[in-house]
């Protein structure tokens, strides 16, 4: 059982040449869609149009897009309180997400989930599980179901570095290991569990090393390189479908915003923020596309403009979308 470490500058134009250009441009569009969605939602929150707090993922778009692009439509993901990017990457529409954030009955959870619980079972996303590490045992259970049914589905289970020291991580990961379940444990290591830096709570901050102690394969990947994430997830999914799961992927990334909207993020040192800003996943992938001759600046600008228009339209519609009524109070809920 080994833990391999991908070098930070692994992928690039050579890796890009192995893919269909339309597919690569769609990856780019998804990255931009997540970034712009998050940026627009931030201002909706600040101007008071959107209730509740929100947990955003600016800077981490490539983890969501790279993982989900490697999955089949009927594969499943579990997500966290920071789930907007996962949802968009798994194919939920901007409209059903925006409606959900506005609490509208046309939202993906009929307005009853809100920001922390976005999801759509028909599209392979269990509504977000906001308890830290809470999704890990559930992902093991779902994958056990896939295995018992003999389906070829896999589960990609997203969680953060803060989840690794939770008891639920050990329980879920160990179960998946002893039964060789088809689950990819995707740790988005953004260096901070809320405000606590990983090296304060881990003696060994290389999270992928944990896999070896359970007897399966772990891999650390540059999480801001969408093609590196895609390739690593494809390998992991193949192993899972062949009965050699689970796999632990540690995706190194960085959150360019506070833990939640109420977090001023003062704990991220300035030089660290600046260093990560130079590794922005969208700018890096744009560079790959330009070098491969797949898109010039004008083509990329058209993508940004189209995304902007799509989100503007979704916000307009979400503002007018119907809210749940008293009659909806007891539907779709267990208690």
């Amino acid at each position: 059982m080994t833990t391999s470490h991908t070098s930070p500058n692994a992928s690039s134009a050579t890796a890009a040449s192995a893919h269909d250009p339309a597919f690569l441009l769609e990856l780019y569009r998804r990255l931009v869609l997540i970034r712009q969605f998050e940026d627009r939602v931030k201002f909706l929150f600040l101007e008071g149009s959107m209730p509740g707090t929100i947990h955003q993922c600016q800077g981490q778009e490539a983890t969501a897009v790279g993982v989900c692009a490697a999955l089949a439509p009927d594969d499943f993901i579990t997500s966290t309180f920071r789930g907007h990017g996962h949802a968009i990457a798994k194919g939920l529409s901007v409209q059903e997400l925006m409606d959900e954030l506005f609490g509208a009955s046309t939202g993906c959870c009929r307005g009853k989930g809100g920001s922390m619980h976005v999801g759509n079972l028909a599209k392979g996303m269990v509504p977000g599980i906001a308890i830290v590490a809470g999704g890990i045992p559930l992902a093991a259970g779902m994958s056990l179901a896939f295995k018992l049914r003999g389906s070829r589905q896999v589960t990609a289970c997203f969680f953060g570095d803060g989840a690794v020291a939770e008891g639920a991580f050990h329980e879920g990961v160990n179960m998946a290991a002893i039964w060789s379940l088809p689950v990819i444990f995707v740790c988005e290591n953004n260096l901070y569990g809320a405000s606590t830096r990983v090296d304060l709570v881990m003696r060994n901050p290389r999270i992928s090393d944990r896999a070896a102690s359970y007897g399966f394969r772990g891999e650390t990947v540059d999480g801001n390189d969408v093609l590196a994430v895609l390739e690593a997830t494809r390998r992991a999914a193949e192993e899972c479908r062949a009965g050699h799961g689970p796999v632990l992927l540690e995706l190194l990334t960085y959150r360019r915003t506070g833990h939640s909207r109420r977090d001023p993020c003062n704990y991220q040192p300035k030089d660290e923020r600046e260093a990560w800003a130079t590794r922005d996943p969208i700018e890096r992938f744009a560079e790959v596309l330009r070098e491969a001759g797949l898109a010039d600046a004008a083509a990329l600008a058209r993508i940004h403009a189209a995304v902007d228009a799509e989100i503007t339209q979704a916000i307009e519609q979400a503002r007018r979308a119907p809210q749940p009524t008293i009659a909806d109070l007891t539907t779709d809920v267990f208690a």
Binding site: F45, L46, E47, G48, R261, R262
Partner: peptide, 10 residues
């Protein structure tokens, strides 16, 4: 009109 966003925790 700029209003105070919901930034307090309690």
């Amino acid at each position: 009109e700029m209003k105070l966003p919901d930034l307090a925790t309690t």
